[in-house]
Simulated scan of single mutants.
Amino acid sequence: MSQEKLLQGRCIVEGQVEGEALVTNDAISFMGTIDPKTGYVIERKHEIEGACLKGKILVFPMSKGSTGGSYMLYDLVKNGVGPLGIVNREAESIVVIGAIVSGLPMVDRIDISQIQTGDYIYLNATEGTARVVPKAMRA
């Protein structure tokens, strides 16, 4: 059986949250990838097309797209359909600005290959850690 993992990264936006992971290896543009009214991934052929961000810890490598994505991330959170927190391999300014204005705990420099959709994450962004409980251990 898989073991619980403590992954050390870097604090981007302080805070602590916990929830189920939604993981993709595809970059995300909050402008065009996610519907800001529903929180569903609408980009065709995106690895997590059809998934909803609401109440999840969103795990993805990096962002893509224009600066409008920062405002779209804020809209997701304001509309109550956004993620609880963000874990990145590499933080980029678009998502960082969106996380700051939205008050979303965020870390980067995390080996996201160690996390799978459905794992439970205790995200302590203030300390830069993600404690991951594998889905198999939760069953």
Rank of each mutant, 00 (worst) to 15 (best):
A27I: 05
L53A: 04
G118I: 09
E43W: 09
G65L: 04
I110K: 06
F60L: 02
D108H: 10
G85A: 03
G82F: 04
A51V: 00
K54Q: 14
G32K: 13
G98C: 05
G118Y: 05
V23D: 03
D119V: 07
G69T: 04
L104C: 11
G80S: 12
D26R: 10
I112Q: 08
V132R: 01
D111G: 06
V17M: 04
I94Q: 14
L22H: 01
L104K: 12
I48W: 01
V81K: 01
M62S: 12
L104D: 06
L76H: 02
A51G: 01
G98E: 09
E18P: 01
G103F: 10
M1S: 13
Y40S: 12
E90L: 14
T33D: 15
G68T: 05
Q8T: 14
V81W: 09
L53F: 00
K54N: 06
V81M: 00
I86D: 00
G68E: 14
C11S: 13
G128T: 07
M1D: 13
E43P: 00
V17D: 07
I97N: 05
K5A: 11
I12M: 11
Q16C: 04
P105S: 08
Y74E: 14
V95F: 13
K45L: 11
I86Y: 10
I121A: 08
D108A: 13
K54G: 02
S70P: 13
L73S: 07
S2T: 05
C52Y: 03
N25T: 15
D119K: 09
Y122Q: 12
K78Q: 12
I12F: 02
V17R: 09
C11W: 04
L53Y: 01
T38C: 06
G15D: 09
G50Y: 09
I100N: 05
T117F: 09
N124A: 03
T24N: 02
T33E: 06
Q116T: 08
Y74M: 03
V23T: 08
L7V: 11
L84M: 13
I28T: 01
Y122P: 00
M31E: 15
P83G: 09
Y71P: 00
L7R: 06
C52R: 11
V23R: 15
G39F: 05
K64T: 07
D108F: 13
D108S: 09
Y40K: 15
L123D: 05
A27F: 11
I28H: 05
S66D: 15
V101F: 01
G50R: 01
I100Y: 13
E47G: 03
M62H: 02
C11A: 10
Y40N: 02
Q16Y: 11
D108I: 14
M106R: 03
N124C: 03
I86T: 14
S63N: 12
R131H: 06
G69W: 02
G80W: 06
S66V: 05
A99L: 13
V41P: 11
V132L: 00
I34D: 04
D75P: 00
I86C: 04
V133M: 06
L104S: 07
N88I: 01
Y122A: 07
I48C: 01
